[in-house]
Amino acid sequence: MNYAQARYQNPSLGRFISQDQAFLSVGDNNQIKQITGHELQQYLSDPQNLNSYSYVKNNPLIVIDRNGKWIAYLLGEKNAVALGNWANGNAVAQYATAHPVISVGAITIGAGAIAVGGVYAAGGSIACGNLCPAAASIIDSIGNYFSSQTDKAAKALNNTSFRDLQVVPSAHQKLDALSQKFGFSANDILSQASKSAQKFVDNANNGNINTWIPRPDGGQGLIRVTTNPEMNRIISAGLNTIENVKNGIVNGRFTPLKQ
């Protein structure tokens, strides 16, 4: 376990073992502002903040967490955004971003001046002066390993994976429609939703449990997977706008599921 002042991070799972304080403060604007420096609406406008177990918004390339409470951008937020844009055109950086490697080591990308990496640099570093292609395969294998670990974590947390649950026929049709739209299988969508540690009770609909994941095409909105309150059946799937999810959290329709 890595001690991060406010909570522990499990390097084999690649994430924290408890929820972050900012997320648990949703509903208390003052406390949110104290922890994050942001207003509640601004905090909720970033879907990555809905995953309260993740380490540095799953982006250890450009973000660090010094105290287990809130993140900091290694190069400042504006530079980090610029770096993120740069990384979008960079195969190695894309791979590293898609497959968090925080428990493996720091990644250094670029020629000297730009050094980015996670705080939990336990096992050495991958240096890549001019985006060496060989690093991609290394990161690929590391990423695959830790993806499987994250799957296990989700299983341990929820006692089951969404992929193992019964999907009611009408929900199956909706999942198939999402699959066709995004070019991912229904199982891929359920697998991604399983990995999302944060789930929300829908107080407007029988106490169903919603899990949202970002759209794989980067488009507006979030993919929603809904289970019944007992979490033993997938009963619906579809899309929501971030604005609707955010407002739903603020007005009390969606409340975080205490796990």
Binding site: V168, S170, N206, I235, S236, A237, G238
Partner: peptide, 17 residues
């Protein structure tokens, strides 16, 4: 619309379809 289908079964109707 994500909870609407041409012929949801009885269980689905109980689920809110």
């Amino acid at each position: 619309l994500d909870w609407t289908a041409e012929s949801p079964n009885e269980q689905e109707k109980k689920d809110g379809w």
